[in-house]
């Protein structure tokens, strides 16, 4: 997967909530690359900064969120690369959704309850493709719905007439309306049942193969990510602590937090193991512990952990993997 060219490169991204001394550092020094056609999983608990990262990348962050530094470089198929953080509002409006689109967690809240699916789908097209005629828009909306497996006669329905799964599919259809290069899914199936979740994710995988876009898949459910993504980045306390191919992380997690997270999900098959989860609770972003944010909960913490912050570095002897942990640093 790493052989394909990058489509999105995030480097040194920092996001704060609030200003001055009281600012909360929600995302710190993120370096992340999304390759063309890849599904990148972003896992972490609530408050780990994964959604903030998604909003920062699409510049949807609303105050008091501030991007305090870093670059987000987008590489289009043709033409020059551009830094999303430098775009003027006008350019940004044209760029967003046609290149990067988002699917939010609660489809119930993202669809307007007083408009039909038709008017919400055609609205996107009207804004971005002013040269399309009404009939063309209508046709495109119908084809988008059938793309996600909903019959076109549901165009006239209001959101409340659709089930939760169908609403989420409408959101996906809307995200695909302008053939974006990148689709960011922010907990797309958390509100759905497992049966529906699997159907939607299978459909997404199929659409990705057909339409060839890249996916950033944000969720707290790491067992889901292992099945559906190519690479996984695990976030804790606003930083990426480990990044590797999905299978490798499952087989041998290097960071103690990733290891703990993987052992927080009871398995459905295989031997019944005694599981402990991770002791303690996720860090308070307003009072982060010094050094590695995970050290108060870490079973393997030793002398440098509570003083110096480990940086995300390649794992010796293990190609393509990075981890931010003193256990794996050569010093």
């Amino acid at each position: 997967m790493t052989s394909t060219p990058p489509v999105l490169e995030i480097s040194g991204l920092n996001v704060n909530y609030g200003l001055g001394a009281k600012a909360v550092h929600a995302v710190r020094d993120i370096n992340l690359t999304l390759h063309r056609g890849e599904v990148l999983g972003l896992a972490g608990e609530s408050g780990s900064g994964k959604s903030t990262l998604a909003y920062a990348v699409t510049r949807l962050l609303s105050p008091p969120g501030v991007i305090t530094g870093g670059e987000v470089t987008y590489h289009p198929r043709e033409g020059a690369s551009l830094d999303i953080l430098d775009l003027e509002p006008e350019q940004l409006r044209a760029f967003r959704w046609s290149e990067i689109s988002l699917v939010f967690q609660g489809a119930m809240n993202s669809l307007n309850p007083v408009h039909t699916v038709r008017s919400q789908l055609t609205d996107v097209l009207r804004a971005h493709r002013p040269d399309m005629t009404a009939a063309e828009r209508q046709e495109r909306a119908a084809s988008l719905l059938s793309l996600v497996g909903i019959s076109a006669d549901r165009l006239g329905s209001y959101p409340h007439q659709l089930s939760g799964g169908m609403r989420q599919r409408v959101m996906i259809a809307m995200a695909l309306a302008l053939d974006p290069e990148i689709v960011i899914l922010d907990e797309p199936t958390t509100a759905l049942d497992v049966v529906m979740q699997r159907q939607i994710l299978k459909q997404l995988t199929r659409l990705r193969n057909e339409l060839d876009f890249s996916v950033v898949f944000i969720t707290h459910d790491i067992s889901l990510l292992i099945e559906f993504s190519d690479r996984i980045a695990i976030m804790y306390g606003g930083r990426i602590v480990e990044e590797a191919a999905a299978k490798e992380i499952y087989q041998a997690a290097h960071h103690p937090y990733s290891h703990g997270l993987l052992h927080s999900f009871p398995a459905l098959h295989g031997p019944r193991r005694e599981l402990t989860g991770i002791p303690g609770s996720p860090p308070d972003l307003t009072a982060m512990p010094p050094g590695c944010a995970f050290h108060p909960r870490c079973p393997k913490a030793f002398e440098p952990c509570d003083q110096r912050v480990p940086t995300l570095a390649p794992v010796p002897l293990d190609e393509g993997r990075t981890v931010a942990c003193w256990l794996h640093a050569d010093h």
Binding site: V195, Q197, I226, K247, L262, A267, L268, H269
Partner: peptide, 12 residues
């Protein structure tokens, strides 16, 4: 159906 839909890393 339920057990086959549940996420299961071993399946990969």
């Amino acid at each position: 159906l339920l057990t086959s839909s549940a996420p299961d890393p071993d399946r990969i």
